[in-house]
């Protein structure tokens, strides 16, 4: 066992880990931040996507020890302290960008990364950026609409043909 320290959602945290402890297990098991989901556990589905130093990372494919000293943001750190939803979260609600909700934490984190890199993406860019995040309910159209809406763009043309 070894000790790891990092900043999660703005708070300094630390805990005991094994060498093989994944970041997602540290977040969920040690810190109790169960908003980050484990879907496939093989880095295919993106349900565990978090931000490490502002970059999107699949938390099932990074060891907790590698996050030593780094800044991590999970879905729990996205809304305001008073519970105000972020623009991406609000758009997912407004445009029905989820059904069962299992993939949603990863989708919101990925979409947030996209809009930080590219504030006005095209529909094709949204679809391409989200290709590492799988959703088995929505058929993606409403997710794409939500991301376009969160970027302040017209959603009327999404999936129009």
């Amino acid at each position: 066992m070894a000790r790891v320290s990092m900043t999660v959602n703005g708070e300094q945290v630390s805990g005991e880990i094994e060498g093989r402890t994944l970041l997602v297990d540290f977040l969920r098991g040690t810190l109790g931040l169960t908003g980050t989901h484990v879907g496939c556990d093989t880095s295919q589905c993106g349900a565990c996507l978090v931000h490490v130093e502002d970059a999107p990372v699949k938390a099932c494919s990074m060891f907790a020890a590698e996050a030593e000293g780094l800044r991590v943001t999970t879905i729990e750190g996205v809304a305001g302290a008073d519970g105000t939803l972020s623009p991406v979260q609000k758009a997912f609600q407004d445009y029905h960008g989820l059904q069962c909700g299992f993939c949603t934490p990863g989708m919101v984190m990925a979409a947030t990364s996209l809009l930080e890199e590219n504030p006005k993406p095209t529909e094709a860019e949204v679809r391409q950026y989200l290709e590492g995040n799988l959703c088995r309910c929505t058929g993606y159209h409403n997710i794409v609409r939500a991301v376009m809406a969160a970027s302040g763009q017209d959603v009327g043309t999404v999936a129009a043909d």
């Binding site: 996507l49 999107p56 990372v57 699949k58 494919s61 990074m62 950026y129 590492g132 995040n133």
Partner: peptide
């Protein structure tokens, strides 16, 4: 390569 999260690592 891969997807954005893969490219981060």
């Amino acid at each position: 390569i891969g997807d954005p999260a893969v490219r981060s690592r």
